[in-house]
Design a binder for these strands. Structure first.
Length: 712
DNA sequence: GAGCACTGC
């Protein structure tokens, strides 16, 4: 063992962590001597649990094409393992580099910065990152690159064997994001083509996961060896309720107040499922704690809060109300965002009612929706872990121990089993995967879900009847959008309004632009009324976008505030629009506008026609009874009350089908039956059409068109 | 007449 170790250990310090000032004091990547800061950080790095496993990891990586690393929080795996791969000699400056994927952008950027510091190099030169809108890396010098999993997938579309990489570290695999799952499937195709000694050179893969799934990953990667790295966290004592709770919000409030009164000092984190629930619980907590001896400061936390509101959760807990009195306490009431994306140090108590909102997909009616569902045991463990980051903590689970073991699933259903596949299928087709049925997914989606995706892509013209990708399909795959929106962009020049359509599409790809805080709902509605175009929510969005774009930069913040418009969303829609324009230029798609006067005016008819040409699969028709039915699927739907379209038109196209108390269609635009049969006759082919009132109207439209043609 | 968990390109 020791012999082999010496050969591969290229370490820059001895085993005691004492860096000897010798020739190894020169940074091999830059040729410059190491700074004092490097040695200071090195001392801490050596103490990380993962450091003990450095030689073992390097040996395993050199011997195997894939390995699995199971490491708990606090092990240091994310920052150290990519560096160990560099020490193993896997990267060659200017030729190949090591990639490390992250599910979230902030993680990719902040870890890159940390590792650049540890390696004593400039961020963007030897160590870099790539996320959407931002590439801080250099093909000539970068040897280690952090990137989002979605970004690696994009890169693969133009580099199908991932030739620029010699090793790929997939981090946070246990989260099973859609992109991570697709990349893993893709690696199953790539790895046999990039074995040791092959013409393309070897590609190494390190799959990193926080426990639980390690065996499944090992088996999937053809019995890859496992390296287990312990974490470094504090013990968390778990409590269960004796009986099931009927109302979990009420139980969460009660438990929190109980902790506040009876437990030693330390902050509390409460998990609930959504904004409304959280605001309600916060109000009750404030109300009921007012008369208590110790102060309780309550912060809500969910993603649609502004960054400054989110930052408040990091403020210190308050002191005693009166000198010598009991110290105050902080409680954060949060969605799942605090389970993975946001870490709050100093949490000692966690209250876990055991629910979260999860996306579900119903392929039969082609609808994705959010459902409050029980969490998995893995999630429950992750939540309780949030109590032990700085010292020993306690977690109060508001369900019985029996329920934890018998009712909860082991792990959360991976996203790939809960999503529409249309975008994934388009991407895989672009990557040259022809046989989707036999594509080696870790968890294969339901065949019906894949069928739905193929059907949609065929109707959109992205795939021909043999399932081969068309020229249009190639262009669609280049656009980072859902296939329908991509199609919409590609047809829009035919209607002379691609400039407007890009603005609309950009506005649709960001979170809600029109804000409506409960306490000022009326003012918000009045503000939105200025932008209203009665035939269309899409055109209402366009008006808001156009006005925003015409305002000088320094007035925009105030304008957003005055008009109840989300500044964050507006800024990101401008970014998205610019990215889309860049891709359109590359694809040679014309940018034309119906705004002849240049004052932000537009042609409603042309734009609504373009929308109809792109979104013909999402149409609803008003029955004589007054109810709307979706065309073909015959689902009862209601126009969402937030829509500006309130005169109950006969035909509408819609962006989104939201299942809540009722089946709502949101973001709708008035269309008409003549356009439908003119623009999408292949979809409205009456031979394969369920009998319904809409069918009669379509028949009439077809004969009208036939008559006018014969008259001509 | 309303309730969009969270990411990502």
């Amino acid at each position: 063992m020791s012999d082999r170790r010496r050969k591969i250990d290229l370490g820059s310090s001895d085993d005691n962590g004492n860096s000897k000032r010798n020739k190894q004091d020169v940074n091999p990547w830059t040729g410059a001597p190491y700074s004092q800061r490097y040695y200071n950080i090195l001392e801490k790095r050596i103490k990380l649990p993962v450091y003990q496993f450095k030689d073992e990891l390097i040996a395993k990586v050199l011997e195997n094409q894939s390995i699995v690393v199971e490491g708990e929080t606090g092990s240091g795996k994310t920052t150290q393992i990519p560096q160990f791969l560099l020490e193993a000699g896997l990267a060659t400056q200017g030729e190949t580099c090591v990639a490390c994927t992250q599910p979230r952008r902030v993680a990719a950027t902040s870890i890159a910065q940390r590792v650049a510091d540890e390696m004593d190099v400039q961020l963007g030169s030897e160590v870099g990152y790539t996320i959407r809108f931002e590439d801080v890396s250099d093909p000539h010098t970068t040897v280690l690159k952090f990137l989002t999993d979605g970004m690696l997938l994009r890169e693969a579309m133009h580099d199908p064997l991932l030739m620029r990489y010699s090793a790929i570290v997939l981090d946070e695999c246990h989260e099973r994001t859609l992109a991570t799952d697709v990349i893993m499937g893709l690696l199953m195709e790539i790895l046999p083509k990039r074995k040791k000694g092959s013409e393309h050179g070897e590609l190494k893969v390190v799959v990193m996961s926080a426990t639980l799934d390690a065996e499944k990953f090992q088996e999937y990667f053809h019995n890859a060896p496992l390296l287990k790295v312990p974490g470094r966290t504090f013990p968390v004592e778990i409590f269960y309720t004796a009986k099931p709770e009927r109302n979990y919000v009420e139980a969460a409030v009660r438990t929190t107040l109980h902790i506040h009164q009876c437990e030693a000092p330390g902050d509390i984190l409460v998990f609930l499922t959504g904004e409304q629930e959280i605001e309600q619980a916060c109000e009750e907590l404030r109300e009921k704690s007012r008369s208590m001896d110790a102060e309780l400061v309550v912060y809500p936390l969910y993603s649609s809060l502004s960054p400054e509101q989110q930052r408040k959760i990091f403020s210190e807990a308050p002191g005693p109300r009166t000198p010598g009195g009991p110290p105050g306490r902080k409680v954060v009431v949060s969605t799942n965002i605090a389970e993975t994306s946001l870490t709050i140090d100093g949490i000692v108590y966690v209250v876990d009612p055991g629910f979260s909102k999860q996306k579900v997909y119903n392929p039969r009616i082609r609808v994705e929706s959010l459902l409050v569902s029980p969490i998995s045991r893995a999630s429950a463990k992750q939540r309780s872990g949030r109590a032990g980051r700085t010292r020993p903590g306690k977690c109060f689970r508001l369900y019985t121990e029996k329920s934890f073991h018998d009712d909860l699933q082991e792990t959360t259903y991976p996203e790939i089993l809960r999503s529409k596949m249309s975008n994934v299928v388009l991407t895989l087709k672009k990557l040259g995967i022809d046989d989707l049925v036999h594509f080696d997914f870790l968890d294969p989606p339901a065949p019906e879900t894949l069928m739905r995706a193929l059907e949609l892509l065929n109707y959109l013209g992205a795939l021909d009847d043999e399932g081969e990708m068309t020229e249009l399909g190639y262009q669609m795959s280049e656009l980072p959008l859902d296939p329908q929106l991509a199609k919409l962009i590609l047809v829009s020049p035919d209607y002379g309004c691609s400039s407007e359509i890009v603005s609309i599409v950009a506005s649709l790809s960001v979170p809600q632009i029109f804000l409506r805080p409960r306490e000022s709902a009326k003012q918000a509605d009045e503000a939105k009324a200025q932008f209203t175009h009665h035939e269309s929510d899409h055109l209402t969005l366009l008006r808001a976008y156009n006005e925003y774009a015409m305002i000088p930069d320094k007035e925009r913040k105030q304008w957003c505030w005055d008009n109840f418009i989300s500044e964050r969303s507006m800024i990101s829609s401008v970014n998205v629009r610019n990215q889309l324009l860049g891709i359109m230029k590359r694809l040679d798609i014309q940018v034309v506008s119906s705004d002849i006067k240049g004052d932000g005016s537009f042609s409603s008819v042309d734009i609504r026609k373009a929308l109809t040409a792109g979104m013909f699969m999402q149409v609803a028709y008003r029955q004589r009874s007054g109810e709307y039915l979706t065309v073909k699927d015959n689902q009862h739907v209601y126009i969402h009350p937030s829509s500006v379209v309130n005169n109950r038109p006969e035909w509408v196209i819609f962006e989104e089908f939201a299942l809540t108390t009722k089946n709502h269609i949101r973001t709708v635009t008035v269309t008409n039956v003549d356009w439908l049969v003119e623009l999408a006759p292949h979809y409205f082919d009456l031979e394969n059409f369920p009998k319904c009132e809409a069918k009669g109207e379509l028949e009439k439209a077809y004969s009208r068109i036939a008559q006018s043609r014969s008259r001509r």
